[in-house]
Amino acid sequence: MPESSVNTAPAAGPSTLTARGRKTRDSVLAAARTVFEDVGFLDARVELIAQAAGVSYGTFYRYFESKEDVFFELSNQLFTEMHSGEPSFSATPRERLIAANHAYYEAYHRNAALMAIVEQVATFNAEFRALRHEHREQLTARTAHAIGRWQRDGLASPDIDPILAARTMSAMVDHTLYLWLVQGEEADKEALLTTLDQMCVGALGLR
């Protein structure tokens, strides 16, 4: 039976569930993540996710409309975790930037297997690519705002565009970690992170 023909009613959102329902939904999410990381997005099936969660086919569709639906939720959770690190406001700009880089590394390291699937799906799914772009833009806007504030305070170079600087630094850090943690490119951890920090600090001309 085609997976798309099973579900006839909208999936229940977390806010409408009982405590038991939320627990079951969370177990389906956890199982889905394991399946995606084990076999990839293309080979993942609702049947495999239901089996991994120990629930029936119908129970899956009580909470999610499709494997795409559950993947989108996992990705939203992932992006929120990846971009939630916020160092103390008492830190200097240089310290804040380095702390943000290292928090992102730790989050990437914890989630490298799922990040590999995220990058895969973004190459062929336009809707998911838009979701990925939306989260990137949120991070870019937050970083650009901080850079602009540092420029006004005379702490960063006034000759760079805050938005372009935020985008290019994010791309540099993201791709470097992807090559290292996902593609398996050899690197010394401390040397790599120190180099990323130096590149970012130098690019902004932080004093």
Rank of each mutant, 00 (worst) to 15 (best):
M115H: 08
R149E: 11
R94V: 12
R96A: 11
G85V: 08
D161G: 09
Y178E: 04
A165G: 07
A156T: 00
N101H: 09
S75L: 10
A116W: 00
K67M: 11
Y108C: 15
V70F: 02
A144Q: 04
R142F: 06
G85Y: 08
F72A: 13
F71G: 00
R167Q: 14
F64A: 01
R149P: 03
W150L: 07
G58Y: 04
N111K: 05
Y57R: 15
F60P: 03
A91H: 10
R62W: 10
A99R: 05
F89T: 10
E73D: 09
E134T: 13
L97T: 03
L155H: 08
V118P: 04
H102Q: 07
L164T: 08
R152S: 09
Q120F: 08
L74Y: 05
E119F: 07
L131W: 03
A91N: 12
R62T: 11
A166D: 02
R94T: 11
T140S: 15
D174E: 11
W150N: 03
P162C: 03
A107N: 07
L177H: 15
L114K: 08
L97Q: 11
R142E: 12
A144F: 00
E95N: 08
L177C: 07
S88C: 01
A156R: 01
H83P: 06
N111P: 00
E119Y: 09
A156N: 03
A113Q: 00
L97D: 11
E81W: 05
D153N: 13
E119H: 12
E95Y: 06
A126W: 14
F128Q: 06
V121T: 00
S88G: 14
N101A: 12
G148F: 02
I117N: 00
R136P: 09
E81F: 02
R129Y: 10
H109E: 14
E137L: 11
T140K: 07
Q77P: 04
F128L: 07
L74K: 05
W150C: 02
T92S: 14
L74C: 08
G58K: 01
G148P: 03
L78T: 04
M115N: 13
M169R: 12
Y104G: 04
A113G: 07
Y57K: 14
E106K: 08
S75Q: 09
E68N: 14
V121R: 15
D161K: 06
A116H: 01
V173R: 05
Y178A: 13
Q151C: 01
G58Q: 06
D153L: 11
D174K: 10
I163Y: 15
T168I: 15
W150D: 14
L164F: 11
G58M: 02
A107Y: 00
D161P: 03
Q120R: 15
A146F: 14
L74S: 07
R110K: 15
Y108N: 08
Y104S: 04
S75G: 06
A113W: 03
E127R: 14
L139S: 13
